[in-house]
Amino acid sequence: MTGDGGTLASGLARDAVGIALRPAHYRSLFADLPRLDYLEVIADNFITEAAGPRRNLERARAHYPIVLHGVGLNLLGHEPLDERYLDAVARLADRLDAPFVSDHLCWTAAHGLQHHDLLPAPYTEDLVDFAARRASYVQARLGRPFGLENLSSYVQLTASTMSEHAFYSAVVREAGCSFMLDINNVYVSSQNHGFDPHEYLAAIDFARVLQVHLAGHSRLDDGTLIDTHDQPVCDAVWQLYASAWRQHGPFPTLIEWDAAIPPLPELLAELERAREVRR
């Protein structure tokens, strides 16, 4: 997975840091061109013929490498993968020369309807086989490294026969793809379901981690944590990140912020904190 000189086979520096680019930051980003190793964009927002998004993406690409993150693959959906969607993502990845593409280990649609959410499924051996075959196919179809992201989840399912990290690891291993490891999601799910996040991270083969995501979350009145991406990364997640870095670093790191989006300097300050944690 790791090439010479601390770079991924994908060409991105192993210790690269970046941000998830959102339209709220276009103006500041293009004006200031801050020091960033790369950007990540939601692929689904750019597989459109609309002129505006295409132009902004081209402007960003002129200054930074861009990796693609999808939300619509529906890997664990019971219906066949959408070949037109895969075509569009592959074309976009080619156009951007994206170092890698990622999406989620979840389902997002069923029976012809889109749910626009990242939904959990029971963790079972037969689903490992199904998911791994599909992830392997997607990676071959895209012609570049493909990473699967772990979910934040709010339910545990009675039909599960294995832990989340065992399921996640098995799918990645059998598919021959990579982890797109979201440490905030590990933390959120660990609090909601009462498992040890350190044990989860210890089970991950970091040689196969394409990228780590960090983000903020919210807490409901009943104590449930929700993956809202609307505030700074919390201290507990920073501690998990620092621990993972000490034991398994380097790995590319990216900050996501999707709601109540602050000015770009605030987001860059979060990124600076990631750099400090690693020193």
């Binding site: 069923a110 029976h111 079972t124 689903l127």
Partner: peptide
Amino acid sequence: STPPAWLESFQA
């Protein structure tokens, strides 16, 4: 690849 038989009804 064929999904497990239970997946469709779970998702419904």
